[in-house]
Design a protein around this nucleic acid. Structure first.
Lengths: 191, 191
DNA sequence: AGAAAATATTGATTAGAATCAAGATTTTGT
DNA sequence: ACAAAATCTTGATTCTAATCAATATTTTCT
């Protein structure tokens, strides 16, 4: 999941990484390959060794809406892995040549039972996720697109080299044309 | 938290209700009273015996943005109770005369330690929350305001009697004028 | 019950972003 | 390296929803 870098201190998440490093299947993906397709019953979770992904779906007009990006050293799944037996709400697609460590969710859940106190795993993971989602909600409701753009490039400076303006525009909720104009306005203003 | 009704089947949530019923402080609130104010270090969680609340904050223009409603038999907190020691991102305000069962978060956390396997409590709770937040994100990005309105009144039909159009408008992300016009258009169309 | 406040509706106008369109630039894949 | 495709920028136009404004209706409070 994107935006969780800071939470790698987190004990549960570290255990999850260790598990994936020991038991995970190494999977290489090319640009545009899908890790998850919306509507599938996808039950895997992955750790990104190298690469980047976008998490997206379509809006009521059929236009792609990107809800999140994920980069190296982050987890990726269709946001909430479908514990509820429901279909993936989002598609997850590689933006670059990427390398993943993948494990079926059931393996992770059985690990938890073995470890007894292992519930912490999922708890920490989901808690990070919830916090991220709350911040995203607030951001989308309360910040101007320009502010979302500024914060994004502060948080992930590298994103400008690795993700297209088209995709960044979708993420912050404007058209590519509007983002382009926004950026040239910002350039003028900072002179 | 609003929108979690369906998750009352959930074992962890049931335990949490039981705990609040046994040990919770009964608190009566009048219309417009705040349960949480944005920016506070608020560390309580409550179960609503009767009444309703809105969870909101201000956008970059100072306009109130409602992110959630909570009604009878639901939990309410400043969304994520601040385990991270961070300030509340949202205010929680009573819309009606309301009765709560309130417990400090630390009591709940210590309960968990006593119960050993009790981590499930928070895990279930936070998991419900994360799922709710994901759906909200997708809804805001992908559905038209009219669709959000329709789904809201299907999910909580009672809301039309208990919440002002102004607040419903904020929740679905339009001005009160736009909602009013939307509603009269919908009335015409269904004839 | 009645005055005052808040809310809801409706119309007119404005503002801002989407769309449409065309050209320039960059990237991709063989 | 090259052709083709995709992306980015810029301008002109359109369209939708916000704002402004005035009135009607409902709710609140004593």
């Amino acid at each position: 999941m994107a935006d969780l870098n800071l939470l790698h201190n987190n004990k549960g998440l570290l255990k999850l990484i260790t598990f994936l490093k020991n038991k995970g299947e190494r999977r290489t993906m090319r640009r545009r390959d899908f890790f998850v397709r919306e509507g599938e019953y996808h039950a895997e979770i992955a750790y990104i060794l190298r690469g980047s992904f976008k998490l997206f779906t379509s809006d009521y007009r059929g236009k792609e809406q990107i809800l999140s990006f994920s980069f190296d050293h982050e987890f990726v799944a269709c946001y909430l892995p479908p514990r509820y037996g429901c279909k993936a709400l989002l598609s997850v697609q590689a933006l670059e040549e990427s390398v993943l460590l993948v494990a079926p969710l059931k393996d992770i859940l059985s690990q938890i039972q073995i470890e007894q106190n292992g519930t912490i795993y999922v708890s920490d993971f989901v808690e990070s996720l919830a916090f991220d989602l709350l911040r995203k909600n607030v951001s989308f409701r309360c910040e101007a697109p320009e502010e979302r753009y500024r914060k994004l490039i502060v948080r992930i400076p590298d994103i400008l080299n690795r993700v297209s303006m088209k995709d960044i525009a979708s993420y912050i909720g404007v058209t590519p044309e509007t983002l382009s104009r926004m950026r040239s306005r910002m350039l003028l203003e900072e002179k």
